[in-house]
Write a protein that binds this DNA or RNA. Structure first.
Length: 631
DNA sequence: ATGCATCGCGCG
DNA sequence: AAAGCGCGCGATGCAT
């Protein structure tokens, strides 16, 4: 297939720019204007096209991208222009930015200029600086020519860069990049403006009601600011609860305390039951009014809903484990499970959304990787692991799903509700070295308060019962020390992964990289992570590797699903993978195909990679009109 | 005004 | 010696 490298130059000014607007809003804005674009086919020469919309559109159409692959640096941008401004969807998308992120890290100097320097390609130059606020008509012919030369150079650099970078990637990963880009540049999910505006109104009303309750004592600003809110508490005779700030203490070199005003702080929550009702009202108002994320998100969604379908922004290899992240001011991976936002994400008319998620994949992978055979077998036979572990904790058989009827009221209830929560929290959390304090906190979050002694006992039990998992942490720690001393090590039982100076070699040919891995004076091991020196140790390495392996499995399955849907797409509607959220794949299809898609996704997501023989995985699927229906 | 660090919180 | 991890966003507080 021919590869067409392209680069667009577009109008921008102080207000209308990619730093002020999301890429989606910028490309769809009425002010959007193309200055021109440059292209080259395969190794051929570069050409620059400038002119009015019709001329540019004709040149775009002539490229026949439907049958060709497109390459850019940050293809999400140029690809969105192609689809939203010219109605062109390419056969395949490649992206040097995406590949670079998997090699150098999400913020490791992945701009075209930085990469050109790193690989000693042409100097990118800075012609663009003179373009601020200039429409195409404002350029002299000579300036437009220079602009074209600059744009052609970018195309040349991008094409050269691909030849270098593709050695660091694999065909399978290029498929993942293509798929993620298509989620953005060929959007099909719709946002329901009615659901969103009703939601926005109800959120605003709830806040107004809370503010009304405290209008005597506090305005909105006083509730938002930590200092002012503390002042309000003091006025009511309450000592503001404090807690140690870990980050600030670290930089200061001594303990630094901050206000414990979050809705999860125990001391703060206690004030909700304070004797003085004014204190209660103040605290509940603060909790309800403080966050605006629901409003701002809803407003952002309404904005998109007005402009068109939802381009799903996923950034490839955002985590050093290979997981995706969000971008374009939207994180589709942390939408609240309940609520209007998911309900507002809808399949187009005549279509259904189907979501399939891999069940407890990380707990399964860690058991398999560690060679914890009893746990692997239990997963394989479909046992209720949460109940089984809870049975060991409590000393009697547990069935967390069993129901009974209350002898007096006749009401149905689950007698082993607490036991079930303890089992679930243990299995999902304790595989990666969690200690008793954090475990106790996560039990509380799950609605179980049994005290620290209980938590300590459960942690100990987990580590004794699943001794091979603990052993894996230990061997990862040993491997870490070896690699730091310049040796090569191996990690894992289910699969043995080589760890050398480049990083941990994953079975798909990619790496978990620990940049500048070193031992500190205090004997800790650190590497240069996204936020500076980051501590690393056995259990954390295991977590990283398990996350990376789970990601490979799910993404491979996602590609398999995509391959099956591709030939069907646009036959009698859209058949498409539209979203992934770590262990979940979401697709859409015409109504009539929904049961078949469900079946097909479930089959695909039970496929075990060749390198993972014996890994017991399974999944669950659900579908409906909206993403919110998929549960 | 703008950038950065920090915290809190949503998801997995 | 002990340590769940991985993201991105919005808001505040502070520095430039």
């Amino acid at each position: 297939m021919d590869l067409v490298t392209v680069d667009w130059e577009t109008y921008y000014d102080r207000q209308f720019s990619l730093s002020k607007l999301t890429t989606e809003a910028y490309v769809r804005d009425p002010r959007f204007e193309e200055i021109g674009f440059a292209w080259q086919i395969n190794d051929g020469e570069q050409y620059w096209v400038t002119g009015g919309y019709d001329e540019i559109h004709r040149a775009v159409k002539d490229l026949k991208l439907e049958k060709r692959a497109v390459l850019c640096h940050h293809t999400a941008f140029d690809g969105l222009i192609l689809s939203q401004r010219h109605g062109v969807v390419a056969s395949q998308y490649l992206d040097t930015l995406s590949i670079a992120r998997s090699v150098f890290g999400a913020n490791g100097g992945c701009s075209l200029a930085a990469l050109a320097r790193r690989f000693m390609l042409e100097d990118k130059g800075d012609e663009l600086l003179g373009a601020l606020g200039k429409h195409r008509a404002d350029f002299t012919p000579h300036q437009l020519f220079r602009y074209g030369e600059y744009c052609k150079k970018d195309v040349r650099i991008t094409h050269a860069l691909l030849q270098i970078l593709r050695q660091f990637s694999t065909p399978q990963e290029l498929y993942v990049i293509d798929l993620m880009l298509r989620m953005y540049v060929d959007p099909v999910l719709e946002l329901d403006p009615a659901v969103l505006s009703a939601h926005l109104q109800s959120v605003k009303e709830k806040k107004a009601a809370l503010l009304k309750l405290v209008e005597e004592t506090a305005g909105k600003d006083a509730l938002m600011s930590n200092d002012r809110f503390a002042g309000l508490l003091v006025e009511l005779g309450v000592v503001p609860p404090m807690k140690k700030s870990e980050a600030k203490s670290r930089t200061a070199g001594h303990d630094v305390f901050t206000y414990a005003f979050s809705k999860t702080d125990e001391g703060f929550k206690a004030l909700l039951e304070h004797d003085d009702p004014r204190v209660q009202a103040l605290v509940s108002a603060r909790v309800g009014v403080k966050t605006t994320i629901e409003e701002t998100r809803t407003e952002a969604f309404i904005g998109i809903a007005m402009r068109g379908a939802l381009p799903v922004p996923l950034s490839y290899y955002a985590a050093h484990t290979g997981r995706a992240g969000g971008w374009d001011k939207i994180n589709m991976q942390n939408l609240p499970r309940k609520g209007a936002l998911r309900r507002a994400i809808r399949a187009p008319k005549g279509h259904k959304v189907v979501a399939c998620d891999s069940s407890q994949i990380e707990a399964r992978v860690v058991a398999w990787l560690a060679g914890q055979t009893d746990l692997v077998e239990a997963f394989a036979r479909g046992a209720d692991i949460y109940s089984e572990f809870a049975g060991d904790v409590y000393g009697y058989p547990v069935d967390r799903k069993a129901t009974a009827f209350h002898p007096d009221t006749g009401e149905e209830y689950t007698p082993h509700d607490e036991e079930g929560r303890v089992g679930k929290t243990s299995i999902l959390g304790l595989g990666f070295g969690m200690g008793k304090d954090k475990f106790d906190a996560s039990l509380k979050k799950a609605g179980v308060r049994k005290g620290l002694a209980f938590s300590e006992r459960v942690v100990d039990l987990y580590r004794t019962k699943y001794a091979m998992i603990r052993k894996l942490w230990k061997s990862a720690q040993t491997a870490l020390e070896s690699v730091c001393n310049g040796y090569v090590a191996e990690i894992g039982v289910g699969i043995r992964l080589r760890w050398d100076q480049d990083g941990i070699h994953l079975p798909n040919g990619m790496l978990v990289r620990y940049k500048n891995l070193r031992r500190t004076e205090d004997g800790d091991y650190v590497y240069d992570g996204r936020n500076g020196a980051t501590k690393i140790y056995g259990a954390k390495i295991v977590e990283n590797v398990v996350q990376a392996l789970a990601r490979i499995i799910v993404f491979n399955q996602m590609c398999m699903i995509d391959q099956k849907l591709k030939p069907l797409d646009r036959t009698d509607g859209r058949y498409k993978v539209v979203l992934t959220v770590h262990d979940e794949v979401v697709g859409i299809c015409p109504d009539h195909f929904a049961p078949a898609l469900r079946e097909m996704m479930v089959t695909a997501m039970r496929v075990i990679p060749r390198w993972a023989t014996g890994l017991p995985i399974t999944c669950e699927a659900a579908g409906g009109e909206s993403y919110g229906d998929c549960k």
